[in-house]
Structure formats: C-alpha cells, structure tokens
Design a protein around this nucleic acid. Structure first.
Lengths: 335, 335
DNA sequence: TGAAAACACGAAAACGATTAAGTTATGTTT
DNA sequence: AAACATAACTTAATCGTTTTCGTGTTTTCA
C-alpha cells in the first residue's frame, strides 16, 4: 500500500508537504503541489480513512438505523427508497453509510456505543422502535442525529406529513360524495396516532359521523390483517361506502376480501391506500392513494445530518415537513 | 472520550497491559485482567475502530455494492431482502456493512479505491453491471470478493439456481397439460441468459415446440413492458395457453392486459411469475411462481465473505447454488 | 537449594495521516 | 540598508491501539 510517506520520498519533500499538497492547503507552492499530486496518482496512492479519522476525529461516515421488524424495515418499499436516497445524497456530500445495530459479533452494544465505536459523525434514525431506551440514549447523546417520522425534543426530524395526508384523503373522499368512511389503521405508532387524529378531526370538521365500528385496527404492510378488518366492515348492517387502508400493500388484502364477496371496486366499495408505492400505480383500477415523498425524505435526511455535522453551532433543530401528494387513482367512486 | 490510556492510569498499570486484558490475551493475570475490564466498563471505555483498523489492517467492515439502476436495486424486494440478510448475518459474525459507490463528494473513485479507502476487509457485489470495468478491477484485485448471481473466474459466487428454477417451472406447466408456453424474459443479463437457455432446453427435452413469437423481451420489474409483451402474445393467431413472466411484479402488467381483454386467469390464460415476493402470495388467485431463497442468498454471501477474510489460505472459491422452490399457486390451469 | 521455566507486566515502536510551530529564503517597505 | 512580512517547507507531536521484545518475579523440580 502506497502511503504519503512513500510519495514524500519519491518527491524528495517532507511528509507534511505531501499531506498539505494533497488536501489543498495554501502554503505549498503551486508547482510543487502539482508535482506531488501527479506522482501520488501515478504511484497509486490512496488515502487511509482510518488514519484520517483517528487524527481528525471525523470519519465522514454516517450511521443509519434500520431495524427490520415485522411491519417496516427494508422490505417495505417506502423505507428502501428512503435508504436509497439517503445513500445517494450522502455520497454526493462526501459521506458513506454504515448500518448501526445493537450487536457486533458476540459483544452486544447500544446503538450509541456502536456509532461511537465506528466514529460515525452522525446518525440517521429511520426505522426502529423509537421508545426503546437505546434509541433514547442515542438521541440524548452528543452525537448529531436526525430522525424520520418521529420527533424528539431539540432534535431535527424529517416528517412525512401524515396530518395533511389524511386531511387530503378525507376531503377527497368527501368531495366524491362519501359520508360513510371507514378507516383501517396500522398498529399503535406515532404515525398511526397522527393519521387517526387527523382522520377524526377532519371528519368532524366536515360533519361526517364516524361510528366506532368504522375504525379498525390492523398491522402495517400485512394484507391478512387488513383483509380481516375489511371482512368485519363488510359484515356491518350499515356498511361503509369507502375504506381507507393503512398502506397500499395492505389494500391487497382488502381487495381480495371485497372481490371474494362478489363486490367490485369502486362500484360497490371505494378504497384508498397510503404510500404511493409502485404497486399502487400498476393495479387496475389504479389505487387512490397518498404518495409519500420518500425521495425528498431521504435527501432531506442526508442534507440535515450533514448540515448538523458540519455546522454544529449554527444549525438549528427543525422539523421538516415533507408534503406528499394525493393520487386520485380510480378506486373512489363518485356517489 | 475514554481511552485505554485513561484506563491504564486509573488501574495503575501500563497501556500494554490494558490492551492485552481487553483483548483477552493470556499473559495477564486473571485478577488484574478482571480489574481492568471492570474499571474500563465503569469508566465507559469504548474501543476505537479507526485506531484498531490502522494498527491491525483489519476493519471488520464489509463493503457492499448495490447500484440502484432501473430494474434491480434496493427497491426490488429480492435485493432488499438479500441486503437485510447480509446485514444481519454479517453483524452476527462481527462485521459491519458499508455501501461502496463510485464517488464520494467531489472526488470520483473506482469501487476498488473506495473499498480500500474504507479499509474494507472484503466486498459483496450484489446488484451492479457486472461487465463494468470498475467491477472487473475489483474482482481482479487482492480484495476478497463474493458476487451474487454472477460468476467470475476463481471467485466465490452465490447463485440463485435459475437453471433449475426454469426447469421446475416448465415441467410443472407441462405436467398441467400446457404445450403452448410463452416466455417473457428480462433484459439481456446473465440471469436472463440462463433462464432462457434453461427454458429452451427443457421445452426441447419435453418435446414442446417453442415458436419464435412465443419468446418476448421485456424489462425486469417493469409491468408496462411485460404488459406490452403480453398484448402481443394475446394477439397471435395461435396464442399460448400459458405465459411465464420475468418476475412476480412484472406479472401485474400482464394480468392487467389479460383482464382488460376480458380474459381470466387461469381459465383463459395461465401465468407464472418468478421471485416469490410477498405480493405473489397475497394476490388472488395466488400466483404460481418460483421462490428465490433470498434469505439463504444473503446469509451465504455473508458467511462466504467472512470465511474468505478469515481463512484466506484455506478457503476455496466456490459457486454456491441456492435452490429455490416452486410455489404452485393457482394461476396455472389443468388442461 | 539453585537453575530453569513459567508467569505477569512494561517500554517503545509502529500504523498513516494531520497540524501547530518553527525555519529558511525571498521579497517588500521606508 | 535595516527591519519586517511573506511564501514555502520541515520538524515533531499526536490520534488510540496493537504487538514485539524485554525484564523482573515467582514457581518448579532435580
């Protein structure tokens, strides 16, 4: 492996001169610097991130928390798309991505310890149990952090606008003439709480009555549970005319149930998803859904964490609301 | 930050002793070692991966190549599941995962340079253009590498068994009485070549004639292109009774086309997917498909790269065939 | 009991890079 | 021309660990 030392010998200058020339310091003559850069390249010199990190205490490495539990995790297109965009944007800004977990080999460590061990300059917390003590420890530490879809006090958070999303969905469905609107929500998370509150308040504002039996609980990304909830809704005496699903993928479970009962979407029952994953737009009829802007979420997350890392004093903790977009699709019938 | 030095002072022993005690060397008295470990923990000592890597030339970090081009990439459930499993298994074995790309900030580098820069002990090459010169450079370097679904000479590869997969599919369809079998394949990749060859040879062996117009080209993971191919197939005078799709997701495009023409699956047209993603099993009728064992792929990839890293002399380059499984589903009609 | 072996620990160099502070040589000012 | 500023380098310390080679002490056993 070619080091700066090798290069310095080859150029007949000191180690320091090489380091400065390579990092573009100004107190090196332009001709010398150029010569050093040329020979370094010719010799196949590569910087050593470990040495650099050790000395500078900056790794240019961002930790990412992605715990793959049942519902969310990498298999969910929303998250894999966010990850993809964090990765791309971070790389553009000169940072690499390392996954942070709670164990490494046989030694178990907290997220914080792991991130410190790897000298991460900051951490993006994407998909985890935000109530876990280890997550709390991490956000309360001195490490820069950015969370996705969950707010911690005095910390930057990138939020998909679930409140507005739900408002737009309900208003759209209302505009289409629906007054019997059912909502199948996901398991009890911060996201679910926001959507549910928004659903209830918007319905109230529009004067839409929501009987208790119109609100069902299911599991995100699990068509089976939303299928069961759908069945219960269809069995009601006063069945809803429109069902809102926790996410696009879960809608499949509802769709099966509806079709199996000989009903058709949207003629007999209208339906709306959430997420705007690829699937929603290749189904026929195209699913009405609220597209979450995963691309912007990822980009903003990367931008924010880098900003905090590079300007720790001037960057302020903010909550960035990322608006989504209603995709009307063809699954909500005009009544 | 607490270092070994701090600990050594606190314990009144030398730096060397602390290092040995912490790494479990034998030439330290058991009582001293225990005392050192206790105080280290009490003081909140954390090892520094950068310093360790610098000294030992081992980072316990595995690079992963995941370039997100159109068809494959993280948004494809097959790959995101593999990534998830590589991650989990690598962590179990004491390694972290870092994404390797071709640029970092404004400096562009090859994969090899990036991996070297980050001191990766090895690289898993998952989803890229395997013919790219930079990929070639990487696999021809001294870095341990493992590839997925593509073989390089003298290198370990984890292969989803596309040959057998196609054999099983064709035999299954044949057993169901189909003799007019069409195949819509993906773009020209190594995987496509294998499946196509296997399709042709199996059909030949079974005495099934495959007219040229029964073999259509589409794009992986793109329902639109497979929809178009499906339309062409349906327009043939002598239309096939069964269509094999490049992947489960692409099947959606075909499904829409078929239903739009007033035909039904499987009564009028039978269909088979490939991958066995979640979607395939929540569709009604359940899609016949060949389940690729992404979990095993990921686990084997992690195991293999770690084995090569830790036993460079005794580990041999092998091609590990990961068998999949035919899921019969309900989309192939008995003729 | 005395020499060799085993044990427990320390000193110091090294990994590759960065950087504060010091040293020349050259140029500028008055 | 003396004094000073600037440009262009160099020296040497340092980041936190690991590891080789010693060294002093204790144990072992003939």
């Amino acid at each position: 492996m070619i080091t700066q030392k090798d290069t310095s010998i080859a150029c007949g200058v000191s180690l320091a001169t090489v380091s400065k020339a390579l990092s573009g310091q100004t107190d090196i003559g332009e001709d010398t610097a150029q010569h050093i850069r040329d020979t370094a390249k010719a010799m196949g010199y590569l910087p050593n991130a470990a040495a650099r990190a050790l000395k500078t205490n900056r790794s240019h490495n961002i930790g990412v928390l992605f715990e793959d539990k049942t519902s969310s995790g990498l298999r969910h297109e929303y998250f894999s798309e966010i990850l993809q965009c964090i990765k791309t944007e971070a790389e553009r800004l000169g940072y690499d991505i390392t996954f942070i977990s709670r164990n490494l080999g046989n030694m178990s460590m907290t997220y914080y310890e792991h991130a410190k061990y790897r000298n991460c300059d900051g951490v993006v917390i994407a998909s985890v149990d935000f109530r876990h003590p280890d997550v709390i420890q991490l956000v309360e530490s001195n490490l820069p952090t950015v969370t996705l879809d969950y707010v911690f006090d005095s910390r930057t958070a990138i939020m998909s606008d679930n409140i507005s999303g739900m408002i737009e969905i309900v208003e759209y469905v209302y505009k289409k003439g629906h007054r019997k609107i059912a909502f199948i929500h996901g398991e009890d998370t911060s996201v679910t709480q926001k959507r549910l509150a928004s659903f209830r308040s918007t319905c109230a504002r529009l004067g839409v009555n929501v009987p208790d039996e119109y609100v069902k609980s299911a599991i995100f990304h699990d068509p089976r549970s939303s299928g069961l909830a759908t069945r219960e809704l269809l069995a009601l005496n006063d069945r809803p005319t429109c069902i809102l699903y926790p996410d696009d993928f879960s809608f499949i479970g509802g769709m099966n149930e509806i079709e199996q009962q000989g009903l058709s979407i949207p003629n007999d029952i209208s339906a709306v998803g959430y997420d705007g994953i690829l699937l929603s737009q290749v189904l026929r009829p195209r699913l009405a859904t609220y597209r979450q802007d995963a691309v912007t979420m990822g980009v903003k997350a990367a931008e924010s964490i880098v900003d905090i890392i590079e300007h720790p004093l001037t960057s302020l903790p903010v909550q960035i609301m990322v608006p989504g977009q209603l995709w009307e699709g063809e699954t909500v019938k005009q009544l």
